[in-house]
Design a protein around this nucleic acid. Structure first.
Length: 407
RNA sequence: GCGUCGGUGGCGGAGUGGUCUAUCGCAACAGACUGUAAAUCUGUCGCCCAUUGGGCUUCGUUGGUUCGAAUCCAACCCGACGCACCA
């Protein structure tokens, strides 16, 4: 009994608290001082992170807030990972394109399961002071219409329209649906239902999180704190999301992660170190300096890639990924991560490769051949469109596709 | 219900009778180069066959006009906006 109590006692290390409140943090409501005071006083706080299970994977963007949640948990506070299984079925209007697709209950639950697994790289779901997993359908799906109306009466249309994204739509004469107004309310109600002290989320979630803060004040007379984390963005301010194509999913292989990270622009290196790794602040500062002094950003990017991969796949896998990357892309040798296909002698290479869906169509294949993208493992280009396989051969298509053909 | 505008390739967005597989931008892919799958440059970017070249199918759906339609007409479906009706 005693042990348990000690384990759940908040850690009062001012340095760690400071790091939690500042590193990768964009803004804190009501203020950094306020939350810092509460933490230093030894108050044990409850904070949650909400994620809508819209896809099967979490990505590096999620890792930023998961990491903060982990820090909070390690500081001895109660953390909740909230799966927005209910809100996820409606779709957050923050992401314009998501407004359309509604997920089925089965999809949402499947995704949710995968999330817990991926989040386990950060959070402890067992042992002392374990993280709690909750689903917001637990309360949202049970609400009666009159309760919903009551909730809706707590915010005004003007308050909603303050949200820049809604405002923009009004300016552009584009429609806003009522359920989109409901979204911040529902998300805000999560705070009330769980009676939390605070919430963390990406900067893009600030409006929704503040809606919860508002509701907490009105309904529970409680000052909910909100921590808005920085987003991993490129210099033009674009979010590193699914649409950007260079998103790294947390369940990707070490090799894929390595490649994706290496394709990032150099300006992303330092922010990514800060947001997505456990590399110390001083070390990051040193790297920044050395880069400004003309160090090759590539080397730092390699380091970044390894640091990130180590979190999800471990150190050895990170090293292996680097090795494979150097071999395939720097030295341009045939990769052993090839697709193996068995065929009969005399089959045209174009047929093999389109049938295996490695190349989209025969036209595509022909284009690739013309462009000199198809070669064997010795680097000899294949220029005959009708090249037929008569003996086992290793084929490289473009930079990244490798096929081992057997008979 | 009436009216107005609109529905074009992965996305954005031109094109309003032939020169349209359809300008352009983004994304994607390939080649060169490099420090990487970065940046830059060049090229590709519906499908199928072919040596040059040829064939077929796309512009919400279905019909129609025409020698010829993404482009004109009709009906239908979908969306936005405005108005009305109902309450």
């Amino acid at each position: 009994m005693m042990i348990r109590l000690t384990a759940n006692k908040p850690v009062l290390d001012p340095q760690r608290i400071e790091s939690f409140l500042t590193r990768g943090v964009e803004k804190v409501f009501p203020s950094t001082e306020n939350v810092r005071d509460r933490m230093l006083k030894g108050e044990r706080l409850t904070m949650y992170l909400g994620i809508d299970p819209t896809g099967p994977t979490l990505h590096l963007g999620h890792s930023i807030t998961l990491k903060k949640l982990k820090e909070f948990q390690e500081l001895g506070h109660q953390v909740i990972l909230l799966i927005g299984d209910f809100t996820g079925m409606i779709g957050d209007p923050t992401d314009k394109t998501a407004a359309r697709k509604k997920l089925t209950r089965a999809e949402v639950l499947k995704n949710a399961k995968l999330y817990k697994k991926q989040a386990s790289a950060f959070l402890k779901f067992s042992g002392s002071n374990k993280a709690i997993l909750k689903y917001n359908s637990a309360w949202l799906s049970k609400m009666k219409f009159n309760e919903v109306l009551e909730l809706a009466s707590l915010m005004t249309v003007d308050q909603m329209l303050k949200r820049d994204m809604f405002d923009k739509r009004v300016q552009e004469g584009k429609p806003i649906y009522i359920h989109e107004f409901m979204y911040p309310l529902m998300q805000g109600y999560d705070s009330v239902a769980m009676d939390v002290d605070g919430e963390i989320g990406g900067n893009d979630q600030t409006f929704n999180m503040l809606a919860g803060r508002h509701l907490m004040r009105v309904v529970k007379d409680k000052e909910k704190f909100v921590i808005a984390s920085k987003l991993l963005v490129d210099p033009s301010g674009k979010k590193m999301g699914k649409t950007e194509g260079n998103m790294v999913s947390l369940d990707q292989s070490a090799g894929e992660m390595f490649g994706k990270i290496m394709s990032w622009t150099d300006d992303l290196i330092i922010p990514a170190f800060e947001l997505c790794t456990f590399v110390s602040d001083s070390e990051i500062a040193d790297m920044k300096k050395s880069m400004e002094a003309g160090a090759n950003p590539r080397d730092l990017k390699v380091k970044l890639a390894k640091a990130i991969i180590a979190i999800y796949h471990g150190e050895p896998a990170a090293l292996k990924a680097e090795e494979v990357f150097v071999r395939t892309f720097v030295e341009k040798t045939f990769s052993d991560e090839a697709v193996e296909i068995t065929t009969t002698s005399g089959t045209k290479l174009g047929d093999i490769v389109t049938e295996a869906k490695i190349v989209e169509s025969k036209s595509e294949y022909q284009r690739l051949v013309k462009q000199g993208a198809v070669s064997d493992s010795n680097g000899n280009k294949i220029s005959d469109i009708h090249f037929a396989v008569t003996s086992p051969i290793d084929i490289k298509i473009g930079k990244r596709k490798f096929v081992k053909i057997k008979l």
